[in-house]
Nucleic acid binder design. Structure first.
Lengths: 152, 152
DNA sequence: GTAACTGCAAAATATTTGCATCCTT
DNA sequence: AAGGATGCAAATATTTTGCAGTTAC
């Protein structure tokens, strides 16, 4: 879990920022690194409390907002009023990612995942309602917390 | 939209409170009235800013929390960090309501509805994941904001 | 060099806690 | 009468804003 910045991820980060017409700065690189290195979603507090790094709180707020505005990350609302952010696979910076994917919150480890490959089935809404976007958050046990089955 | 408390709703409110082993107090009655009188979901701020009524902020926090704990109302998370609460149809106080219904947020009037009658289709989760609860929030135009069709 | 980003201070909001008083049962 | 609920004050926590110094391009 060492936060070594490899040459490769460094390039990746720069790419994403440049593609979104953002200047490549230290904070932005470091925060984007976190997202790239992380399987699940990240809350504002997770970044601030990050051991070993020191992040200015205000800069974190502003950076996250900038990333959301650019479509690099997206917001995952949760019931406990702790907003989490996630970078999704591949085309995050194209703004497609938000359209139809499922979020999964593990009740055991509290990790939030983006399940990009799950198809959200059509909803039959009542007469008069029409929807442009559907957000699905599933709650349960994730792949890592699943009790392993001991085969004989 | 007058907040007249009819004898009937008064009884209804008392019923709900008693059924949940809560003492019947002024604040609880007034706040529960609001939920009963309202089609959509309510945010903390909506209650405080309620014209004509004066609610102590702290009491509102505590009352909402109590109602959530008892299962009288439930939380609807939204991306803008403004948690909303809704009382659902019929069996709110039995704790069933949260299980599988769809929330609908109108992007026009910003009202949040509980669509209790919509069936949430099965999700095919990736290998290793298992879910116990699914939250679906659809966003779009509601029945009231729909542009009316002028028939010839 | 210029425009944009950062970090600090401080303001504005939102939420929680403690406690004395009041109300429900 | 007793326990719980309320309302006020105040403590905490969260988010936003202003601005001067710094950095990216």
């Amino acid at each position: 879990m060492n936060q070594l910045i490899t040459k490769q991820t460094n390039n990746q980060v720069q790419d994403i920022l440049k593609r979104n017409q953002l200047s490549v700065t230290g904070s932005r690189k470091k925060i984007l690194q976190l997202f790239l290195a992380q399987d699940g979603a990240i809350a504002h507090g997770d970044i601030e409390k990050r051991a070993g790094e020191k992040f200015d709180r205000v800069t974190v707020y502003r950076t996250l907002q900038t990333f959301v505005d650019k479509g690099i990350i997206h917001v995952i609302p949760t019931a406990d009023n702790s907003i989490r952010y996630a970078l999704c696979k591949d085309d995050c910076s194209e703004g497609h990612h938000q359209d139809h994917h499922v979020h999964f919150v593990c009740t055991q480890c509290n990790t939030t995942y983006c399940l990009d490959d799950i198809v959200i089935p059509e909803l039959k809404l009542p007469k008069g309602y029409s929807s442009s976007h559907i957000e699905v958050v599933a709650e349960g046990i994730c792949k890592n917390c699943k009790t392993p089955v001991h085969l004989p």
